[in-house]
Amino acid sequence: MRICGPPTGADGHRARYPDPVTIAHAADRSGILPDRITTPTLRTFLRSVPSVDEVGVAERVAALSTRSIKKESKRAALEMIVRMTDLTTLEGKDTPGRVAQLCAKAIRPDPTDPSIPSVAAVCVYPTMVRHAVTATEGTGVKVASVATYFPSGMADTKLKVEETRMVVADGAHEVDMVIDRGAFLAGEYFKVFDEIRRVKEACGEAHLKVILETGELVTLDNVRRASMLAMAAGADFIKTSTGKVSPAATLPVTLVMLEAIRDFHDATGVMVGMKPAGGIRTAKDAIRYLVLFNETLGHPWMTPDLFRFGASSLLNDILMQIRWLDTGRYQSPNYFTKD
């Protein structure tokens, strides 16, 4: 079934990362990898990942995107999207006040309509975690923190692990890490794998979402391989993008990742979650992702525990759509809170 070879340049790096380790597998993920893990064994593993038919993916996505969801189904879909949203603020100008405001919105997205559920989580920078934890205490809204020197991830593994420990100690329930794309593209699979594994260890009880930054992975084949690598290394979720690189989440990339999740589940029985993030701004877009998700993984995955949207401006569009369904009047952003 092997169609594609490893990315070019892989062999040149074999010498630089010679240190094999024997890892104690998370019990549920054993079997998919050999006990001794090195760049060559990982390369063999990734070679077994079938290559992606790009035209087929585009066609499948186009076909599913035409599906029309209306009225009660639309309303149900919109509420589901709200419950699956990671309401995000990742800006250099973030302040504790702004984060508190975001948390208030996360808890009660539309102050005039208590029937609208809270979102799944707020997603913030490490320094904002404790403010978010205070603001969401006792509400069921989780706090996710980006870590590992988000968004570039250009730092030593030790520092990344340390940052992960800090955000978990501050109370983050979920950690969103970025993979080392440079290492992945250079074929240094062991480095990428080991980093994810060590960050996962540092997470402890917290859930780990691994950001592949698909906009920098160039091909869909790479997206699929990186997905498999991240899942094998211990990811609880795989996530498309940081939102800082364009293109961010797209439907084709999401489909490829969903299929990788399905393959991984078939091989190990482990259900890994999915989080498209970045660039999803309208309710219509989000519903397309929902359809794609339901058609690829099906009902057991349709829960906030296994599916999230990373978004900031999406939520208001959803609220506007819900109010439009309720009132029959087209809505204006002027009548919804900004953050």
Partner: peptide, 8 residues
């Protein structure tokens, strides 16, 4: 009617 009702 749609124009008259449009909130924007």
């Amino acid at each position: 009617p749609w124009l008259a009702d449009h909130m924007d």
